[in-house]
């Protein structure tokens, strides 16, 4: 007991505040690389121009400390908390929310959280969405994902029947992309979680968005499906900004897990090209 490592939640608060700023102002390196590869692969002149502008936008944001996108997102915060760690100094979720409050204020980020019916803005971008889980070790790994509303609105969950199977899953992913069209700011990234339960599928779909673009999925079945879905989605021709082109999607992340004998849950989390995510290990 006495040998437990301790972390004051004030450190988590301050780290969250910093990560909010970094995430919203600096395009992640993997996304930049994917946009550059997209630019090289794009056949449409308009599509090439859009991708060039998006890279230019990231440069301006970094140089001028401006957010990449005015939608600085609802702050989704993932925490992997080591089970051999003792958190002191107060409540973890309160500390995360305080970090979001400070980060959004300090970095001039848009506060985009409101009451669902009155639409009254909470004024400080809280409450954040906090997903904490206990993992082995004595560290805290945290990720801040500011999630934009436009792409989140295009996300879908399906309770596919076992009879519809894998073909049904592919059809519904494509249906989601077609319905979204230009709305979620393509080129998009797709987080696709298959199996488990309704709730778990949605959470895993979001969690896949923490993966690095271009990384290889260790599950060969998921890796094969990622590549097949990517081709299908790019064949829609929706293209950058939805104005037509070959680069509709920068990457598909698939997570497959067993499910109930009656079920085949499928969650498709649509992410825009401003795929912001920053992480830290404490």
């Amino acid at each position: 007991m006495s040998n437990l490592r301790t972390i004051d939640v004030a450190l988590i608060r301050d780290t969250v505040a910093d990560l909010c700023g970094q995430a919203d102002l600096l395009l992640p390196a993997d996304v930049r690389r994917a946009l550059e590869q997209g630019l090289a692969a794009e056949e449409s002149p308009v599509g090439k121009e859009i991708l060039t502008r998006l890279l230019e936008n990231a440069d301006i944001a970094a140089a001028e400390s401006m957010p990449i996108c005015q939608d600085c997102g609802l702050a989704v915060v993932f925490l992997d908390v080591g089970q051999d760690l003792h958190l002191i100094g107060g409540d973890l979720v309160t500390a995360v929310n305080e970090g979001v409050r400070r980060g959004y204020e300090r970095h001039y980020l848009r506060k985009s959280v409101c009451h669902p019916f009155t639409r009254a803005n909470t004024g400080d971008n809280t409450p954040a969405v906090v997903h904490a889980r206990i993992v082995p070790g004595d560290k805290v790994h945290l990720w801040v994902v500011p999630k934009g509303g436009g792409s989140e609105n295009m996300s879908k969950v399906f309770l596919v029947t076992p009879a519809q199977g894998l073909p049904g899953v592919k059809e519904r992913v494509l249906e989601t992309v077609e319905a979204a069209g230009p709305n979620p700011c393509p080129p998009i990234i797709l987080g696709v979680a298959i199996g488990s339960t309704f709730d778990d599928a949605c959470l895993r779909a979001k969690r896949t968005l923490l993966r690095e673009l271009g990384s290889v999925n260790p599950d060969p079945e998921a890796a094969a499906l990622e590549s097949e879905l990517l081709t299908m989605v790019n064949n829609t021709g929706i293209g950058p900004a939805g104005l037509g082109g070959r680069v509709t999607c920068l990457g598909v992340f698939v997570d497959i897990k067993p499910c109930h004998i009656a079920s085949l849950p499928l969650a498709v989390n649509v992410q825009c090209h401003a795929a912001r995510h920053k992480e830290a290990v404490l």
Binding site: S65, C69, Q70, Y108, L109
Partner: peptide, 22 residues
């Protein structure tokens, strides 16, 4: 159709791209 981010000091406006129109 835009909801801009707050203007940092010395700027007239923050980031100001379009929102989804539907």
């Amino acid at each position: 159709y835009v909801g801009s981010s707050p203007a940092p000091p010395g700027r007239v406006i923050g980031a100001a791209g379009p929102t989804t129109s539907y």
